Simulated assay, not measured.
Amino acid sequence: MMAGDRTRERGELEGEVMQILWATDEPISARDIQDRFSGHTPAYTTLMTALDRLERKGQVQRQAESPRKVRFIPTHSAGEHAGERMLTALNNTGEREAALLQFAGNLDDADIDLLMTAFNQSTRKHKRR
């Protein structure tokens, strides 16, 4: 591989970092994140750049006990992140109804039951106000 060649697609490293953070119950260091990569392990500086970008995007929070003891945690769970992405995609489409119908048409029975339960709970909360 030549200098400047990509080993990952754009955004893939950040996604892998987030998967590692979501799988961890406590704040972890960049070195610990680096050790948990399967396959190609990014250079430490590359990983720190990705963590800086994720922090600027509000997806990661940095916790520093000292300059040498920095740990990272996700600001949202994987489910919350997926929900935000779904809402963003829905809000950015000019065809909201078509997007919702396409999405709903691909849900299995368990997903539909879960959504129906959530809708019923939401409806009860709105009626109480």
Score class of each variant (00 low, 15 high):
residue 63 Q to W: 10
residue 62 R to K: 15
residue 92 N to R: 13
residue 43 A to M: 05
residue 111 D to E: 12
residue 52 D to I: 06
residue 110 A to K: 08
residue 112 I to E: 02
residue 50 A to R: 03
residue 69 K to D: 15
residue 119 F to H: 06
residue 83 G to H: 05
residue 83 G to I: 03
residue 94 G to I: 00
residue 112 I to K: 09
residue 85 R to L: 15
residue 101 L to Q: 14
residue 84 E to C: 03
residue 65 E to G: 06
residue 70 V to G: 08
residue 35 D to I: 03
residue 119 F to V: 06
residue 76 H to I: 07
residue 100 L to T: 04
residue 84 E to W: 09
residue 128 R to A: 14
residue 76 H to W: 08
residue 37 F to L: 02
residue 125 K to Y: 08
residue 41 T to W: 00
residue 90 L to E: 02
residue 84 E to Q: 14
residue 121 Q to V: 02
residue 119 F to D: 00
residue 118 A to G: 03
residue 127 K to L: 14
residue 46 T to Q: 11
residue 90 L to R: 02
residue 41 T to D: 02
residue 38 S to C: 03
residue 93 T to A: 01
residue 105 G to I: 02
residue 35 D to S: 14
residue 54 L to I: 08
residue 55 E to N: 13
residue 58 G to K: 04
residue 42 P to C: 04
residue 107 L to K: 00
residue 128 R to S: 11
residue 44 Y to L: 12
residue 43 A to T: 08
residue 92 N to Q: 15
residue 116 M to E: 11
residue 48 M to G: 02
residue 124 R to P: 00
residue 36 R to H: 05
residue 80 E to L: 09
residue 52 D to R: 14
residue 43 A to R: 13
residue 78 A to K: 14
residue 99 A to Y: 00
residue 67 P to S: 12
residue 34 Q to H: 13
residue 79 G to F: 04
residue 36 R to W: 02
residue 57 K to S: 12
residue 77 S to Y: 09
residue 117 T to D: 08
residue 90 L to K: 03
residue 34 Q to E: 15
